[in-house]
Design a protein around this nucleic acid. Structure first.
Length: 472
RNA sequence: GGCACCAUAGCCAAGUGGUAAGGCCGGGGUCUGCAAAACCCCUAUUCUCCAGUUCGAAUCUGGAUGGUGCCUCCA
C-alpha cells in the first residue's frame, strides 16, 4: 500500500516498523461541543485506513485523544456554569454517540489530556533539561530556534515567516521567536490547575499529543494523522517537542485530510458555517454521511451541498437494494441454473476484489473503491435480471459486497426491518389473490394501503416482494 | 509578505504520459395489468485559458486567470 506522506510530499510505500503491526495516532476532538461534519472527516477517513489495514491482516494499535482542557473548554464550562470535567464527560459521551453511529471503531486507547499530566510534566522537564525551554510571565515556552529541523513538515522557514509577518509583530509578545509556543500555562484565577515543578498550571495544547502518543505508542509512531489545519503549527510543534525530548524520529508517515467546505469556504465552528453531524444525521442518516465523505478522496476539498448528499443517499440505496435483491433470490428457489453466467459472476467478484484493493492501496482511493463496488452491483443486477444464478455465486457476490462495504465502515446488511408483520403479509396475499382475478382496482388499493403503512410491494418473477420503505 | 492546495459533464467525483471510472439528476427504451426496482441506450471529441516538451498530455514544463487553506483557536 502506498500513502501520501506529507513529510516528503510524495506517495510512499507504507511499511510498519514492527512486522505486520501499525501504530496510528489521530488527533481527536476538543470536547467542548458536538462535532460537525468537518470534524467527522478525519474520524471517518482514518477509521477507514485502520479497517483497511485490518482487512489486510495487519495488527493496528490506534490511539485518538480527547483534548479536555484548553481555553475553549474553560470558557464553555464557565458559561454553562459547570466544571470543565463535567463538560468533558458530557461531550465525550456525545462524541461516542455520533462516532459509534458513524461506525467509527473505538480506538484502542482514548486518552484524555487531563489524565496524562504526569507524562506531560515529565516531557517538559526533559525539554527543560536539554535547554529547549524558557520562562515568561504566563508560562514555560519552547524555543523553536533551538530545534534545527523546525518547519520540516509544513516547509516553513522561520525567518521568512517573521519577515513576512512584520505587520503582526505584536503577536510576538515577549516570545523569542514568533513560532515559539507555550508548554505549560501558569494558573489564572478560576482555572483548573495541576501541580508541577513550575507551579500550578495546565499543559499547552501541543504537548499533550506528544505525551499521549509516547505513552501508548512509543517514541516513533508509524502514522500520525489529522486535518490539514493541524499541520502547522500543531504537528510541527509536536515534532519539535518529541524529537527534541526523545532524540528519535517522531513519525514515519504524516497524513492530513482536506477540509469540508461550505460554499467553497472551510467549514468551521469559528466561521459559523458548520453543520453538526447530529443534525445532519437526523435528516440523512449516519451511513449516508459516511458514504458522502468517502466518495471523495480524503486529501481533496469536499464541498458540503444538498444535491451531493441526495446523490449519496440514492447511491447508497442502490447498494442496499442489490443486497436485498440477492437475499430475495436466495430465499426463493429457482430451477434452471445458468451455469455459465453463475461462473461469470464468480469471476467478476474476484475482479472486483482486485480493483477494490488496487484502489485502496493507492493512497486510500475510496472513490475508486466505490466504483469497483458499484460495478459489481451492476453486474449482479444485470445477470440476475436475465438468468437464474447458482446460490453459490449469489452468496459469494453478496459476501463480497458486504465485506468490501464493511472495510469502508458501511453496513450493507443493515435493514430497517427484516421481519414483516403477519398482518402485512396477509394483505400482500389478498392483493396477490385480487391480482390473480385481474381485480386491479382492489389490488392497487391494497398497495396504496400498504404504502401508507410504510411498506412497499414490488412484483417480481418470483412473486411479490414486500419490504419496508427505505427510511433516512 | 511567506508557504501550500485546488480548477474534469447539469451536479458530485476518480483518473498524473497512451486516447475520459463511478454515483446522482435528465431524456428514450425493455420488463409490468399499472407501478416499483432492475437492465439497455443517450447525456464531456474533451479535462479554466495560453504557450511549450512529446509519436502521443486532463496527466510533464512555463505562464495567465479564478478560488481556497495555513502562517492566530481550528479536523
Amino acid at each position: 500500500m502506498r500513502v501520501y506522506n506529507d513529510l516528503s510530499r510524495t506517495k510512499e510505500e507504507l511499511v510498519p516498523q514492527k512486522e505486520n503491526h501499525f501504530t496510528i495516532y489521530v488527533c481527536g476532538p476538543t470536547v467542548y461541543d458536538l462535532f460537525h461534519l468537518g470534524n467527522a472527516r478525519p474520524f471517518i477517513i482514518y477509521d477507514t485506513l485502520r479497517r483497511y489495514l485490518l482487512y489486510k491482516n495487519y495488527k493496528v494499535t490506534y490511539v485518538q485523544n480527547f483534548t479536555d482542557i484548553d481555553d475553549k473548554m474553560i470558557n464553555r464550562a464557565q458559561s454553562r456554569e459547570i466544571s470543565v470535567k463535567e463538560l468533558a464527560d458530557e461531550m465525550i459521551a456525545e462524541y461516542y454517540h455520533d462516532a459509534d453511529n458513524l461506525n467509527v471503531m473505538r480506538a484502542d486507547h482514548h486518552p484524555r489530556a487531563t489524565e496524562t499530566i504526569p507524562e506531560i510534566i515529565e516531557m517538559i522537564s526533559t525539554l527543560e533539561e536539554k535547554g529547549y525551554t524558557y520562562n515568561l510571565n504566563d508560562g514555560i515556552y519552547y524555543d523553536t530556534s533551538k530545534f534545527e529541523d523546525y518547519g520540516k513538515l509544513s516547509k516553513r522557514d522561520l525567518d521568512d515567516q517573521e519577515a513576512g509577518a512584520s505587520e503582526r509583530v505584536d503577536l510576538l509578545d515577549d516570545k523569542r521567536n514568533l513560532s515559539d509556543f507555550v508548554l505549560w500555562k501558569f494558573k489564572k484565577e478560576g482555572e483548573p490547575a495541576w501541580n508541577s515543578p513550575w507551579g500550578e498550571g495546565r499543559p499547552g495544547w501541543h504537548i499533550e499529543c506528544s505525551a499521549m502518543s509516547k505513552k501508548f505508542l512509543g517514541e516513533t509512531l508509524d502514522i500520525h494523522a489529522g486535518g490539514m489545519d493541524l499541520m502547522f503549527p500543531h504537528h510541527e510543534n509536536e515534532i519539535a517537542q518529541s524529537e527534541a525530548a526523545n532524540e528519535k524520529p517522531f513519525v514515519n508517515y504524516w497524513m492530513h485530510n482536506g477540509f469540508i467546505n461550505v460554499d467553497n469556504v472551510k467549514m468551521a465552528k469559528s466561521g459559523g458555517n458548520f453543520f453538526l453531524v447530529r443534525e445532519l444525521a437526523s435528516e440523512y442518516g449516519y451511513d449516508v454521511l459516511r458514504f458522502f465523505i468517502l466518495q471523495a478522496h480524503y486529501r481533496m476539498p469536499l464541498n458540503f451541498e444538498e444535491e451531493p448528499l441526495m446523490a449519496a443517499t440514492h447511491g447508497w440505496q442502490r447498494v442496499l437494494r442489490s443486497v436485498d435483491h440477492i437475499d430475495f433470490l436466495l430465499a426463493n428457489e429457482t430451477a434452471q441454473i445458468a451455469e455459465t453466467e453463475s461462473e461469470a459472476l464468480i469471476d467478476y467478484v474476484e475482479k472486483t476484489k482486485q480493483e477494490f484493493e488496487r484502489a485502496m492501496d493507492d493512497d486510500l482511493n475510496t472513490p475508486d473503491a466505490f466504483a469497483a463496488i458499484f460495478n459489481l452491483v451492476r453486474q449482479v443486477n444485470t445477470l440476475t435480471a436475465d438468468y437464474s444464478l447458482s446460490n453459490e455465486s449469489l452468496k459469494k457476490a453478496r459476501a463480497y459486497i458486504i465485506e468490501l462495504c464493511a472495510v469502508l465502515g458501511l453496513d450493507a446488511e443493515k435493514r430497517v426491518d427484516t421481519e414483516i408483520p403477519q398482518e402485512i403479509l396477509d394483505k400482500v396475499k389478498l392483493r396477490d389473490d385480487a391480482k390473480a382475478e385481474r381485480d386491479f382496482a382492489t389490488a392497487d388499493s391494497i398497495r396504496d394501503e400498504l404504502h401508507a403503512l410504510g411498506y412497499k410491494i414490488e412484483d417480481t418473477p418470483q412473486g411479490p416482494k414486500v419490504s419496508r420503505e427505505v427510511e433516512k
